[in-house]
Design a protein around this nucleic acid. Structure first.
Length: 229
DNA sequence: GCGACAG
DNA sequence: ATCTTGTCGC
């Protein structure tokens, strides 16, 4: 585990945060397919908060993409560096996530985060931002459609429908379990949308949410508990 | 202007 | 995100 501090150059308010997104948005790479599903490593990242104690805990859990066995875990604890503002989630989550990723000994491979990448008001969500800062292939798998619209995909696992910002497909509503609410997949960095969906299906043999997310979620909550006590 | 709004 | 246990069902 590591203790992190908010970077000195981190934006202090919403206006600065918007300027950062504007400056970095052009660095997103969208024309690489990304690693093939089921091979190499896949890393899930997630964050938990204790706003009262001003604490944030992040976890990074590395899985073998073929077996979905846990290969390595890392956590980091820090101070909350930004309020929750829809569209600016990255500034709240990334400092601690980056600290957790830094303390991994293995390369993360593909990174899966909670939330969005291209499906974002300025096409630069959490997953895009993490990708640009690390250079790693990143995808976003969210539990809610945010402000976007979609038609219900077919009832069977694997069915999908475009996630739309007006006419533009910014992601996909993907059914990972028969008859269960879809998840919302979008591209972060260096992965195509088709491949991001294939990865998401490879990571959901049993539950609605990816194994990466499930592991990271429980680990960051645990780290937060231990940090409070 | 008001409401909605990833985590 | 977070407040929060057991319980019904496949």
């Amino acid at each position: 585990m590591t203790i992190n501090r908010t970077p000195a150059d981190w934006p202090a308010d919403e206006k600065e945060a918007l300027a950062v997104q504007d400056a970095l948005r052009g660095r997103v790479v969208l024309d690489e397919a990304g690693p093939p599903p089921g091979t190499g490593l896949v890393t899930g990242v997630d964050v938990a908060y204790d706003d009262d104690r001003d604490l944030v805990a992040a976890a990074a859990v590395v899985l073998d993409a073929r077996t979905l066995d846990v290969v390595e875990e890392a956590t980091a604890v820090g101070r909350v560096s930004f309020p929750y503002v829809p569209g600016l989630l990255a500034f709240r989550e990334l400092p601690t996530v980056l600290a957790a990723l830094d303390s991994l000994t293995s390369g993360p491979g593909l990174v899966v985060c909670d939330g969005y990448g291209r499906a974002h008001p300025r096409r630069f969500g959490l997953a895009s931002h993490l990708g640009v800062l690390t250079g790693l292939p990143v995808i976003g798998v969210a539990k809610n459609p945010f402000t976007f619209t979609y038609e219900q995909p077919g009832e069977r696992r694997g069915a999908s429908a475009p996630l739309l910002a007006g006419e533009e497909e910014v992601g996909r509503a993907l059914r990972t379990r028969d008859g269960v609410k879809p998840v919302f997949v979008s591209v972060g960095h260096r992965v195509t949308l088709d491949n991001a969906c294939a990865h998401t299906l490879a990571l959901t043999p049993r539950y609605r949410l990816p194994e990466t997310t499930r592991h990271a979620d429980s680990l960051c909550r645990q780290a937060l508990q231990e940090a409070s006590a």
